[in-house]
Design a protein around this nucleic acid. Structure first.
Lengths: 216, 216, 216, 216
DNA sequence: ACAACCGGGACAACCCGTTGCT
DNA sequence: AGCAACGGGTTGTCCCGGTTGT
């Protein structure tokens, strides 16, 4: 029963990971319905039986491949924030990190969360749920940064965390779609500039001029 | 019982139009790969042969159904502008019209342009091309409004039409995706409020404060 | 109500005949199973409904088209014999007439009787029956010529009509197939030369040497 | 029960061969266009997926099934010649072997070469090419026998190998068609008798009488 | 034990021959 | 006579287990 000592990664686990790494771009580019098992066979280099040994179904593989793809994006967010101090700097770092994916995608085929959200909304509840959770965690990430920024006094206390999360994610996802659709990264650049300006406008001002949600 | 005089539309043309009207939501919700001919058969009420009498292939039907769906959106833009005078009012009317589609979609399943852009980018060049053209026409629409607004003196002359087109379409499309993904129309409401404020900030100011693209 | 005088051929009958003339090559080249109704629509220039007004089914059209094609061959046999006196001359004329079809086919696609015999033997009893009858009539034609030739004393009395009918038709049909398969009319030329020599060897000889079916 | 040693043929290869054996008669009887995949499914006992595992398309299966059918005929020619010495004996053996197929067909449905030549001439270039090659090899076989017979002195030196190949194959193929069409093997018997006599007349004669291609 | 092979059906898109309505 | 609609049939691919071989 004693587990083998010092053989940290079994061979099967490495194969499994390799399948995920190679399947994720296929799902991200072709979508769930458009990604055939034979395409996955080609991408992974394994035979169909080999894939089914690790994943019980195309469905299960798609869910894990999605999680894997999201984990790459999340990690890039974490890496981006590492060297940044302050709410504005961290938000800008996230905006930059996402914006870079327009020219250097982490997973080919665009943002996996948006792609999955678009395709699976009316067809695949399990995938749609995963996309929902991923997006929710991003909003919470932004929300926690805003909250910390307000507490530290960096951000205007009237700043609405929900507002900002919506504006940032919506604009970035939309701009990524535009850049890919029109094969022109300047859309993403404009969106990044716009968001950066917007985020910086949220700083607490010594003057009495309001910025956001001005009271009527 | 005099027979109807001058019936301008033959029966076949009416059937063809009905197919488009009923196929468009299927493609918009399920995507091209996910929309099977049998689903289209069910949606249209015709048999397979009946559909193929009017459209040579699923491909041809998808292209025309996309164009039909886009035409609905474009018409809603045109209707929205009709009662509006001035660049800001017209832009806000377009933002409102698009924003309404989050709660009262013109075609079920979200924005056909975004959906098609996401799915077809790496799989279906012909569809991707149509989505590109549709988006381009929207950008040109916004561009022409901005240009007119600058000429009339309503808008700040430093306003960049490209910038605005990108920001507006990216934010709206992203927000629609968010609203649908999270089943929460408030995302779209926040985006509309943000964009409305942004557009209004582009008005020519009697003071010398700059708004957009401030010269460094 | 009086029918128009001196209009011997109704328009419908002409259309019907035109359908046959244009459908026969399609069936002869593609076979019954390979000739689709849409191919026949294209060949005839009519719509499907138009064809079905004249022929109750593809089957009925195929049968009549076969008869039409055979009638062309039969007529060419009759024309060929017209100027020939004597059994040998008439047989050679028929051989010549058939042989010419290798380079100048009466109906594109080869001999309709052989084509139909090959395709329909195991699949279409009604067509196979028509092919059988056509071939039988050719054998009877040759048989009657041989019989007349023996009665007139032109042919050796030991000549077997069945034998000759088999040899002539088998060799000609086989040679036509070879010429078409190998795109080389010399096969037919050799067959014609061989048969002509053979037929001429059947003439009653003044000597006592035997020609055919020599007694062992 | 020692397990079988060195089983050289994997299971898949056996299935593949079985498909060919069972598909060949279907194609030979119904033709390429007339042989539906469902008929092949029925004949082979496999499901469609099983067949498509071994052959990429109906087309590929048809080509290999044709080759298989031809190989049976070619093998029967080889077997027939085995016990025969001399050109005349070998030619007669081939004639006999082919003639037997009228009553005991190697592949049900007639000669695959002729059937394919007839059906595919104007519709299926790849199959027509295969039929052409098969026929060409038969002509070369006859040609090589004639050549050897002339060199050994058995055959009249004026014998034309092309002539003989055409006459033999044309007559045999035509007679097989006649026998099948008219359900009467006597047509083939007459053709065999005729060809046998003809071949034997090609022997070198001690006298100076000519046999073939007499100079005018 | 694990991966490759192989077979199974259901379903894909598409076209067939046919009929009825205009 | 032509257009429109019909379903059943076409070939071909799908995703997925069971078996075989290593």
């Amino acid at each position: 029963m004693a587990q083998p000592v010092a053989q940290p990664i079994r061979k099967g686990a490495r194969t499994r990971q390799r399948i995920l790494e190679r399947a994720a771009p296929v799902f991200n580019q072709r979508g769930y319905a458009g990604a055939s098992m034979s395409a996955l066979v080609e991408a992974t280099g394994l035979e169909k039986g080999g894939i089914y040994n690790h994943f019980g179904s195309k469905d299960a593989l798609a869910l894990e491949a999605f999680d894997y793809a999201v984990s790459l994006v999340v990690r890039s967010f974490a890496d981006a924030q590492r060297g940044s101090d302050g709410a504005v700097a961290r938000l800008v770092a996230i905006i930059d990190a996402f914006g870079r994916s327009a020219t250097r995608p982490l997973v080919p085929g665009g943002c996996p969360v948006m792609n999955t959200a678009i395709e699976s909304a009316d067809t695949h509840p399990a995938l749609a749920e995963r996309a929902y959770r991923a997006m929710l965690s991003w909003h919470r990430l932004i929300g926690s940064i805003v909250k910390a920024g307000k507490q530290s006094g960096e951000l205007d206390p009237r700043t609405d965390a929900y507002d900002l999360a919506t504006i940032v994610t919506a604009t970035l996802e939309g701009a990524l779609m535009l850049s890919n659709l029109m094969a022109d990264p300047s859309h993403m650049e404009r969106a990044m500039a716009h968001l950066t300006r917007h985020v910086e406008s949220l700083r607490r001002q010594p003057t009495r001029r309001t910025r956001q949600k001005e009271p009527r």
